[in-house]
Every structure is written in C-alpha cells, then in structure tokens.
Design a protein around this nucleic acid. Structure first.
Lengths: 165, 165
DNA sequence: TAAAACATTGACGTTAACGTAAGGGTCTTG
DNA sequence: CAAGACCCTTACGTTAACGTCAATGTTTTA
C-alpha cells in the first residue's frame, strides 16, 4: 500500500467529522465490536474521545494501529507480546522526551528483529527438512522405482532419518 | 546436558527391556506425564503395550515422534494440525499399501511446504519493515542528527509510513 | 513384606481471545 | 417523537493445551 495522499476534494472541515464510532471502525478493519473493546481492555487501542452519550469515538489513524496488531497476530504473536511491541495505547502521549521514545523504539525493534531471525531460522530448517522428505517420497511415488522399499513404513523400520513416527 | 551414551555395560538383552514407562518417557523428552496422556487422548502417540498392571509402555522410537510434535508446536502448529500432518498414532500400522502411504505423505508434505513458504514470505516482509524502521530510528538516536524531528511522535504527526500508532 | 515411588482413570481448574446474551441508554431517520 | 439501529457495561460461555487434585492400584526398593 503506497500512502494515497487522499486528494482534498472535500477539504475535511474539521477533525471532528472524521471520528469513527466503534461499529464503523469494526467495519473498516474487519474485526468485531467485541474484539475492539477487548483490545481496549488490553490497552492496545483507546478511543480518542467519547460522545456525549459516552459512545467511543476513534481517530482514523487508529485503523493503522489495528492493522499492525492484526499483522502481528498473523505471525502468531500473542496480544500481550503485541502490547509490548507497540506499547500501551493510553500512554502514547505521555512519554516524556522524543529521544526517549526513539530509544525505546529502537530497543523494541531490536528485540523484534532477534525474534524474527530466530523464527526464520527455525522455519528454514523445517523447510529444508520437508523438501528433503518430499524428494525421497516423490521417488517412491514415481512408478519406475522399486528400491527404497521400507521407506514409509512405520513399525520396526530403521529409516528414521527420513520420516518421523 | 550432552547425551551421555550410556555405555553398554549391560548389553540390552531383548527389546522388552527397552520399553519406557510414561515417567521415563516424560523425563526423556522434557514433557510432563499429563502432557503425554493428553497427546494420547488426541491420538498423537500411543503406548506400544501395557504392563500387567496396565502401565503404559512405550518403544524408544516414540521419543522421535514426540520430538517431531514439539518441533511443530514450536512453529505454532496446533496439536490438531500436527495430528493431520503426522497422522494418528493408532493407525500407523493399518494403512493399507505402501504406495498409499507414500502418496498421502507427499500430499501432506506439499501442503506443509506451501504453508511454510507463506509463513516465510510474511516473516521476511515483516523483517524488512523492522529493518527499515531500525535504520530510521538509529539515525534519530545518533547524537549528530537534529532533522527528522517528528518521527517518533504519536499524536497528529504524519510520518505514518515509519511507525505505527 | 511394607514403605516409597510410580502409575491409573476421572474430574475440575486455568489462560487467551474472544462470542454471546442481558438489560439498558443513545443516535438517527421517517 | 417513536421506531430502529447503534452503543453502553456486566457477565457468563467457549476452545486449546494442559495443570492439579483425588482416590486407588502397581512396581520397586530397603
């Protein structure tokens, strides 16, 4: 997604109009209202204000935050992990100095990177293994091969390095 | 703990001696007894026999199977997924033909490979993103840079492509 | 052979990430 | 201004992957 600069056809009157109700936000991000409230419980998001009747009102940029949350979830981070990565929503404005924020971001990103590299290592290992097995199995499946007979057996065979049982 | 190869001072008489009780197996693989029983409930493992007093007795190769389960779990597969990948433990001997087994293995492995490639793609994307951010943040943290001032702010700033809030 | 250590089958408890329902206010549209 | 549509909080339900406890039976060891 290249950042579409939202052509100012309608010069957005003031920021007030842009606020989303929780239902609209849920619609936009494809999550349920319950989920958004749960995220709020965890301090992953927070409404920027409330209506007179205490309806939650969200700034549009909250959508970006939610997309980040979902992306991380798809990578199997727990919401607790994600909270640590993104930081609590309610304290976004209270961090004292810009330097401090940058430093903390750096630390978080570094940890993230380590974690990612580890996952990548594991995945690549498994992939190599799977590819190996596929190669062997494919040989068995091809009709012209009679050798390697005990390969996919499961009891008592000794080809343990090829398959797991 | 480096695997002390237990010198064959006592040449293991017959295969009977090699059977493991559930406690020993748990010890060997670093899981709890409860977990192993739970795996059995799910048909992920199964004892090869029972003692007179109905104690579960496992063949040593069960350890390999468990290691595979744990490895897959570390890659965030659910136990249900793992069951599909490895196949039910109780039916290992009942699959009819060797060709059939090989073909099914091939299909499973192919699906696994697709899944792994997708995960790798996602992870690499995220890693690139993280590296990008780190680059920028590092520039901010370095004492000689005063520009890019609004980068790590959180309310109202427009550098949305750099960090998420 | 008795105690200690280990095992058995229930069965209920726990955490994460929500779903779902109740009982009630609030916006909005006709 | 009344009916829907939407929102509020509170609270209990659900699934996965085990933990933990109880009451009891079985090996092993001293």
């Amino acid at each position: 997604m290249t950042a579409q600069p939202t052509p100012p056809s309608l010069p957005l009157n003031n920021a007030r109009d842009a606020l989303l109700t929780i239902g609209a936000l849920a619609q936009d991000c494809g999550l349920t209202v319950r989920t958004l409230r749960y995220y709020e419980e965890m301090d992953l998001i927070t409404p920027t204000s409330r209506s007179e009747g205490r309806y939650r009102l969200y700034a549009p940029r909250t959508l970006k935050r939610i997309q980040a949350i979902v992306a991380l979830q798809n990578l199997n981070y727990s919401l607790e992990d994600i909270l640590e990565i993104l930081g609590p929503a309610s304290q976004l404005a209270t961090l004292s100095t810009r330097q401090g924020r940058a430093e903390r971001s750096r630390q978080t990103l570094t940890r993230q990177l380590d974690c990612l590299n580890e996952k990548l290592r594991l995945l690549n290992e498994l992939k190599a293994d799977v590819v190996n097995r596929l190669t062997v199995i494919d040989q068995i499946c091809s009709p012209c091969s009679q050798e390697v007979p005990e390969l996919d057996c499961c009891k008592g065979c000794e080809h343990r390095e090829v398959h797991v049982d």
